[in-house]
Nucleic acid binder design. Sequence first.
DNA 1: CAGCGCGCTTGAAAACGTTATCATCCTGAC
DNA 2: GTCAGGATGATAACGTTTTCAAGCGCGCTG
Lengths: 343, 343
Amino acid sequence: MSNAARRGRVTTRGPAITDVARVAGVSVPTVSRVITGSTPVRAEKRERVLAAIAQLGYRPNGAARALVAGHQKAIAVLTGGTTRYGYASTLQGIEEAARLAGYIVMITVIDSEEPALISSTVDLALAHPVAGVIVLKFDAASVKALHQLPAGLPVVAASGGRSSGVPHAVLDDTAAASQATEYLLSLGHRTVHHVAIPAAGRRSGRVVGWRKALERAGAEVPEVLQSDWDPITGYRLGQQLARRERVTAVLCGNDEIAMGVMRGLHEQGRRVPDDVSVVGFDGHPLAAVATPALTTVEQDFVGLGRRAFDLLAGLVNDQHPPQNSLATPRLVIRESSGPPSVR
Amino acid sequence: MSNAARRGRVTTRGPAITDVARVAGVSVPTVSRVITGSTPVRAEKRERVLAAIAQLGYRPNGAARALVAGHQKAIAVLTGGTTRYGYASTLQGIEEAARLAGYIVMITVIDSEEPALISSTVDLALAHPVAGVIVLKFDAASVKALHQLPAGLPVVAASGGRSSGVPHAVLDDTAAASQATEYLLSLGHRTVHHVAIPAAGRRSGRVVGWRKALERAGAEVPEVLQSDWDPITGYRLGQQLARRERVTAVLCGNDEIAMGVMRGLHEQGRRVPDDVSVVGFDGHPLAAVATPALTTVEQDFVGLGRRAFDLLAGLVNDQHPPQNSLATPRLVIRESSGPPSVR
DNA sequence: CAGCGCGCTTGAAAACGTTATCATCCTGAC
DNA sequence: GTCAGGATGATAACGTTTTCAAGCGCGCTG
């Protein structure tokens, strides 16, 4: 009230703690003590304060609190996107864990690899008071963003790759890709082709694991087919693969692409799994109801997000860098994979 | 430096504007003027200030800025989830628009319908300084959250339903469902069954539009099959539908459920579209590569998010409530729908 | 029974880091 | 020499928590 009257702004600045104190007939710190519960307040006064708060519809000003506290109960998430299954699920895990710990999540998408744009986007995110940052290091842009973060700020990365200086929550993509490749080889396929999604670094864990498994088995290592994130691209690559007679098994960088590949093979008359086996990556909910149902490597993205937040919380509270955290994905065998047809 | 030395806290409080002023040999307001560009500063001093900023790695404190400004360049998004296609895409649109306007997005998931939990979640979100709130009103929990928001706070809703007091960005679900239903009837189907997703209010626009179209055509209105968000549930309902001989056309509440339904029908030996036509909703990227490719009602969720933010920005800046915004979805015909088989 | 000290409440004042306001100083033009 | 106007610094907000000191009641001790 006093504020609104004083300034000409139409943006009503809501009641402040001083207004509550005046209405309740107590001092400002007493109101603060009632709200935070930091110090006992005599019951009678507490009631008066609570009544005044309710009457005025008072809400503590977060900015003022953050200013004195030195940090906000908020974290920033830098990510390459929000829509793809992996991103969205990891985000879900982070948000859940954060909310339970009383933190709010600010999300900023890095949608360009141009340094200047990355820089201004990072600045935008850090212009707000945050306790720490989680970087979803699934693509190249996020990696660059990670390097632009100022020292002294608590930072955690979450990804499928190897560590890189900051505390890391990891899904072991390399082991997972090896496992899937070995499974296909064990079915009798002479080799396994790979359709790769955009990678975070020079080489993605998925590509590395696939290649290693082939080399260990002494199998030929075919050239990688590079895809983007769009299932339609997977579809086109599937059509290409269909034209190559010798292709009998394909490991795809994610389930969305795998479903596109299956469609491309299907349209060119190659049956899955009779002619070609297809294995995806991620455990997308739709993989289970695809036709044929997609064999995939299930990843616990939600758990990844949760672990990333726990790491960050540890960093913020205990100061000492926590243990990195690693989880190994699980192969789920469905209909899209089987032994090669005898010819 | 001075701060870190003064307090025992390990959390280094980074350099403040006073440190920059001291190093640069100018007053604090001058530093502020250099940063904000609000007032010209003599070139020589400006250089010194910029040098000091770079040297110290100074970053303006967002909390202090928000405190004096009276509000933060941030908005809160209340949503029922982040992973489903509609939610994630709308979020993407909001984030993009917000980022371009220099706003950051705080996201809070309402994952329970229990009033007490909703209340504490809303409180968590509003404990931080935000310029306004966008509610993704796709489900019942978000609607309840919307009603808990304090008056005086700029609020915008985004949904597929009808308005409800606050400015609204809308996708016309009702018209879209009618269009899809009319399309199926025009193919010669005697009626159209509906598998519904969880609704925001008592009746969802999708159900209403479907029913209206049937009634207008004088067709029988079958009982609605209620689904949750999991494609597996769609799969089970598809199996159920397969057992009913008279079912020849199914409109599903979203594409994920539709893909589950197709799978369920397929497993029970009913061919899509020869025996049963299936139409989805949303325009999920995977609908295009499903087998058969799914006919669907494409929704511009990203645009919805963008419009919701624009509405909120207008509300925050111009004070006067902006026009609501409505977009009509578009039917995309693919392989999963066709005329009923003659018997 | 008086005096002392302790613990519980409470309020005054300082601090957090920034921007806005106002007065002052300097420079240059008439 | 005076006046206008641009650049600059001192000071006051913004709303909260923290620190410090003081008031008060009570039990213990001499």
